[in-house]
Computed example of a mutant assay.
Amino acid sequence: MAKRLYFIDFKKCLNCSICLPRESCEYKCIVQEAVGDALFIDNSCRGCGKCLLLCSQNAIKHLEI
């Protein structure tokens, strides 16, 4: 079975002040190390795809491995 991994395309991410994917992630896997740093998706991601649908900049991508 393929595993779905999500990542943030830093060229498209505007680091919105209110990131809907980050706010709506029930696993809280879209994180930021410090204020102003780029967001990233950590390994607690379950691959539900909700963030992919909510990002207004289409900055969240997925890979199937």
Score class of each variant (00 low, 15 high):
residue 1 M to R: 08
residue 1 M to Q: 10
residue 1 M to D: 10
residue 4 R to V: 09
residue 4 R to Y: 01
residue 4 R to M: 11
residue 4 R to W: 00
residue 4 R to C: 09
residue 5 L to D: 00
residue 5 L to E: 01
residue 6 Y to M: 13
residue 7 F to H: 06
residue 7 F to A: 02
residue 7 F to Y: 10
residue 8 I to M: 01
residue 8 I to Q: 00
residue 10 F to T: 15
residue 10 F to K: 15
residue 10 F to Q: 15
residue 10 F to S: 15
residue 11 K to Y: 01
residue 12 K to F: 03
residue 13 C to D: 08
residue 13 C to S: 10
residue 14 L to T: 10
residue 14 L to S: 11
residue 14 L to V: 11
residue 15 N to H: 13
residue 15 N to E: 09
residue 15 N to D: 09
residue 15 N to A: 06
residue 15 N to P: 03
residue 17 S to H: 10
residue 18 I to D: 10
residue 18 I to P: 01
residue 18 I to L: 11
residue 19 C to R: 07
residue 21 P to Q: 11
residue 22 R to I: 05
residue 22 R to L: 14
residue 22 R to M: 14
residue 22 R to V: 06
residue 23 E to W: 04
residue 24 S to T: 07
residue 24 S to D: 05
residue 26 E to V: 15
residue 26 E to K: 13
residue 27 Y to H: 06
residue 27 Y to V: 07
residue 27 Y to S: 05
residue 28 K to W: 15
residue 29 C to P: 03
residue 29 C to Q: 09
residue 29 C to Y: 06
residue 30 I to E: 02
residue 31 V to F: 03
residue 32 Q to C: 14
residue 33 E to C: 12
residue 34 A to H: 15
residue 34 A to E: 14
residue 35 V to S: 01
residue 35 V to L: 09
residue 35 V to I: 15
residue 37 D to G: 03
residue 38 A to T: 07
residue 38 A to I: 03
residue 39 L to P: 00
residue 39 L to D: 07
residue 40 F to Q: 06
residue 40 F to A: 09
residue 40 F to S: 08
residue 41 I to P: 02
residue 41 I to C: 03
residue 41 I to S: 01
residue 42 D to Y: 05
residue 42 D to S: 12
residue 42 D to Q: 08
residue 43 N to D: 15
residue 44 S to E: 12
residue 46 R to K: 15
residue 47 G to T: 07
residue 48 C to P: 04
residue 48 C to Q: 08
residue 48 C to F: 02
residue 48 C to E: 08
residue 48 C to R: 05
residue 48 C to S: 14
residue 49 G to E: 04
residue 50 K to E: 11
residue 51 C to P: 06
residue 51 C to M: 10
residue 51 C to L: 11
residue 51 C to K: 10
residue 53 L to D: 13
residue 55 C to M: 06
residue 55 C to S: 09
residue 56 S to L: 10
residue 56 S to V: 00
residue 57 Q to S: 11
residue 57 Q to R: 12
residue 57 Q to D: 10
residue 58 N to Q: 08
residue 60 I to M: 05
residue 62 H to F: 11
residue 63 L to C: 06
residue 63 L to W: 03
residue 64 E to S: 04
residue 65 I to R: 03
